[in-house]
Design a protein around this nucleic acid. Structure first.
Lengths: 123, 123
DNA sequence: TGACTTGTTCGTATTTTTACGAATTATAGT
DNA sequence: ACTATAATTCGTAAAAATACGAACAAGTCA
């Protein structure tokens, strides 16, 4: 309790308001994207969407060995991370890559990769 | 129960043994790396390590607003994902990027990015 | 040997993730 | 108005992730 309070005071007192920011925007954003990609089903969805440009929920569900409720959940996460988008084409829903955000993803990741080009290391 | 069994039979009956593989190796590996990067503290650690080539646990702990037990936990995850390595330099522990695996990371991610270069999309 | 430094491991609490089937919503077509 | 189709949301269970302080291990050096 006490420990938490002390840490808050030293870390988050930004312009007089207690914020909960501990890491840089880029770090947070990169982590959010990485986490969204952090499940094989979601990687599979992204690759499948990329291979088709766009498709319906049902097609995605067919590709995956999981229940549709779970597919829907994964799609929701990808969408809320901004990696994909969906639009209703009743009674179906068409999903596709969110190209605009994907440019950001690429930039952030390639910046990270560049940083970690790295010189020497623990031998 | 029944549903699970059926799915297993159709999905995993590889050379007569019930395997639990549902996704490709690359998808699994990519997801593992992505998940390891899926926390801002771990991104911060990676960037910090990259900026220094190598450093001690204590330096990393100083950079982060979290308890040392938690830092240790994050380092463990990065290590088990193969993104970093650590070696004892008593009484300290020196950490650094795992360069060899990082090449794989780069390859897998840039392949994914290339796939998602994508043509057109949901307008 | 004993005190100190450094990090990991343990035990634990809380939250988040992942998964499912059932219920629901919403539209299309008859 | 019904019925069928398509996908989401609900409720829930189980597992994994995140965080902490305390205890521990392992080495240094006085």
């Amino acid at each position: 309790m006490q420990g938490i309070l002390v840490r808050c005071i030293t870390q988050f007192n930004i312009k007089g308001i207690m914020a909960s920011k501990k890491y840089s925007q880029n770090q947070e954003q990169l982590a959010r994207y990485a986490r969204a990609m952090g499940h094989p089903a979601r990687i599979a969805i992204l690759e499948y969407l990329a291979s088709l440009d766009s498709c319906f929920f049902g097609d995605i569900h067919n590709e995956l060995p999981i229940a549709k409720a779970t597919v829907s959940q994964h799609l929701k996460e990808l969408k809320s991370a901004g990696l994909i988008q969906g639009e209703i084409e009743a009674p179906k829903v068409r999903y596709c890559i969110n190209k605009k955000n994907w440019l950001v993803v690429k930039t952030l990741f390639s910046e990270l990769m560049k940083k970690i080009a790295c010189k020497k290391c623990c031998k």
